[in-house]
Every structure is written in structure tokens, then in C-alpha cells.
Design a protein around this nucleic acid. Structure first.
Lengths: 210, 210
DNA sequence: GTCTATAGAACGATAGAC
DNA sequence: GTCTATCGTTCTATAGAC
């Protein structure tokens, strides 16, 4: 009997391989080899490669998005007139994601690399899978952001949301390059420091004069 | 005789397929089918799939990066003491890229989607390929940026460069989502408008108080 | 639930005729 | 420079023993 059950071992191995070599770059055989399970086990437990991807995603995204909402609601409860300051909202949005993306117990950064890849995947099934996971978060954060940025015209609002996602996704997905480029000056393993810097960059960008 | 030669047809087809389905998700057979050339032609002209990718990249990146440098040098020539204002530098960096990424004659946005994908590709050969293409640009833009942001401590400087790349890459790679999310309010086909908004977001972020 | 064995298809790459 | 033909490999998926 293995210490960790087959299903979890398959999910762990898949997460690492999908992140490292892409979904289409990862064969079922590579997953079963890494997970040290039989080739047929993956079909028994999940049915198909795509279903494995779905499980890999929801395992991390469901608790992550729940934490985002919990943080936002906590800030709203403490606020006056339900208007939360912009830095707090951004922190609730990017903080949990960066913490997951650095926690070795939760994929050790690889899960967020995977997510960064999937955002650009045009496959419809993958896209609807992601959209469903993020719909609730978007619906809750958008009104809060609008309240915190009352003077911003709609086009600027959505464009800046777009830029925000880009800065966040790139930071989550790529923690190696920053170390190389900066010659070791930047330490991506200091998660709270990274969050602070990213939040202040985004907040300034969101509040820029048009 | 075809109107466009075989080599170019292979590059065009590869660009579209690599961008849409990823490099490992694209088979040589799919490329030759789309390009309407013989299966063996790709090996005759390029030798391997990887060599095709290299040609796809350099075909766009060499003129693109040359234009970036030309713009920066022009701004420096017009400036006092060689200190170019931050918005101009950012414009020289992201402007040419966004213009290429929207020009239907230059891949029609697909090339930049491909680039967005490749940034997260851990394959060493792909990474060194990209690094080589961007080395000159980085070496020229870094000193200009440092001069334009004299008070910024090094760690903040490199982190914000990282966030900049993320916002830029995401904007280049994904021009469909913004339309959906904004309900049609944002028009990514208005390239100069997009550049203006992106530059003002990035400039504000770069100049944020620590 | 876990294994072996294998079917059936698609893959990258090349040899050799024209 | 372009074609056909094919080698050897790897893939997903499944059938059936235990």
C-alpha cells in the first residue's frame, strides 16, 4: 500500500508535468510513470486526460477563490459604507493566489505556472472550465473595484483590469526569470514582499490619470 | 507554381498553429496540411520542427526589436542629456510590439499569442532562443529606464520591470478576452488607443511610491 | 482496484525516385 | 525542390486476468 493514494499521486504528477511541459506536451504515460502507478489506473480513476486536468484545476482553485471572497467580505465588514480601499481589494485578489503559488505543499509554484499557460489556451473546453471557476470571483470583485475607483470611465476600468491580470499572472507563473534578470537582487521566495510590491504597482496603475 | 513560396507558406501555417494549439500541440503533419505542401518539404527546408519555430520567431522579432531600438535612439537624440521621459521609453518598448500584434499582414495577432505562450515554456532551447532575441533590447532599455527613474531602489526597479512585461505580454497575447469581459466597451482593434492606455498604466505603476 | 497485453492510430524523420 | 513510401516509435484507449 502506498502512503498516498493513487488518485492524489496522479494529480500531483499531472500538475507538475502539465505546468512544466504543457497539457499537450504531457502524455498519460509520462504521468503514470512519474506517479508510479499503472498505465490503466488513470483511465480507471479519471476516464480521460482532460478530466485529469479538470481535477487538477479545481483542487487548487476552489479553496483559492473561496479565500479571495472571504478576505474581501472581511474587509467589507470592517469598512464604512461597504467601500473598501483599493489596496485592500487588490491584496484580496492577488494575495491568496501568490501565496498558493509559493506554497510547496500546494504545488510549489507549479500550479500557477500551469494557470498562466491555460489562460492562453484557445481550447474551448479549457476556457469554459476556467471561466466557470472565476465567474463568482469576478462578480464579487467588480462592484467593489468600481466603488473604490468612482471617477474611472468604463473603458479605462476594463482595460486596467486586463493589465492587472497580466501583471498578476506573469508574477505567479514565472518566479525564476526575475531572479536571473535581477542578478539575485529580487527574491521571489519572499511571498509577502512580492505581494506588497505587486499591489503597489497595480494600485498606482489603476489610479493613473487618464 | 504557387503564388507564395513553400518556405513562407510553411512559416505562415506554423505561426498560426503554434499560436493556436501550442508547439507540442502542433504536428508537422498539421503544418504541411495547412500550408498545402508535402510532408517531406518541412524537413527539406528546415530540418526539424524546432528549426521551424526558430524561423517563425526571428522573422517577426528581428524587425520588431530593431524598431524598438530605432525609436529609443530617436527619442534620445531629441532629448537633453540623453534622459528620455518615462512615457516615451515605455512607448518605444510596447508600441512596436502591439502594432505588430495587431497587423493582419504580420500574423494578425497570432504571433504575439505565440510569444505569450513561449515565455512560459520551460524548454531550455526555446528559452535561450528568446533570451538571445531580447538581449540587445534589454541592454539598451535598462540604462534608459534607470535614468528616467533615478530614485528607484534596484529591487523595486527589477520587480516593476517584471510587472511591466506581464501587463504587456498579456495585452499582446489576449485581445479577445478584453472584448468579452468589457461587454464590447473596449476595442482592442484600436491599437493606438490600447497603447496609450497601457503606457499610462505602466508609467503610473513604475513611478509608484514605495 | 490493479495489473498485463495489445489494438489501432498518429507521430517525427528519412530514403530514394523523379 | 517535390514527391511517394515507409521505418520505428510513441501515443490513447481498452479488454480481460487476477
Amino acid at each position: 500500500m502506498p502512503r498516498i493514494d493513487t488518485k492524489t499521486r496522479i494529480l500531483d504528477a499531472s500538475e507538475q508535468l502539465f505546468a512544466g511541459r504543457g497539457v499537450s506536451g504531457t502524455s498519460i504515460r509520462a504521468i503514470t510513470a512519474k506517479a508510479k502507478v499503472n498505465l490503466a489506473a488513470i483511465h480507471y480513476h479519471f476516464g480521460s486526460k482532460e478530466s485529469v486536468l479538470e481535477s487538477v484545476l479545481s483542487r487548487r482553485l476552489i479553496p483559492l477563490n473561496a479565500e479571495r471572497l472571504t478576505l474581501l467580505e472581511e474587509y467589507e465588514r470592517r469598512s464604512k459604507n461597504n467601500v473598501v480601499a483599493l489596496p485592500k481589494i487588490i491584496e484580496a485578489l492577488v494575495g491568496p493566489a501568490l501565496r498558493v503559488s509559493r506554497d510547496p505543499k500546494k504545488g510549489g509554484g507549479l500550479f500557477m505556472k500551469l494557470l498562466g499557460r491555460l489562460v492562453l489556451e484557445p481550447d474551448e473546453k479549457i476556457q469554459s472550465l476556467l471561466t466557470n471557476q472565476f465567474r463568482t470571483v469576478l462578480e464579487r470583485f467588480m462592484p467593489a473595484l468600481k466603488k473604490a475607483l468612482p471617477g474611472l470611465e468604463p473603458a479605462d476600468f476594463y482595460w486596467r483590469l486586463h493589465f492587472l491580470v497580466g501583471a498578476m499572472a506573469h508574477t505567479m507563473a514565472d518566479s525564476e526569470r526575475i531572479q536571473t534578470v535581477s542578478g539575485g537582487i529580487c527574491n521571489p521566495d519572499d511571498t509577502e514582499d512580492t505581494i506588497k510590491r505587486l499591489v503597489s504597482f497595480i494600485v498606482a496603475g489603476m489610479e493613473a490619470e487618464s
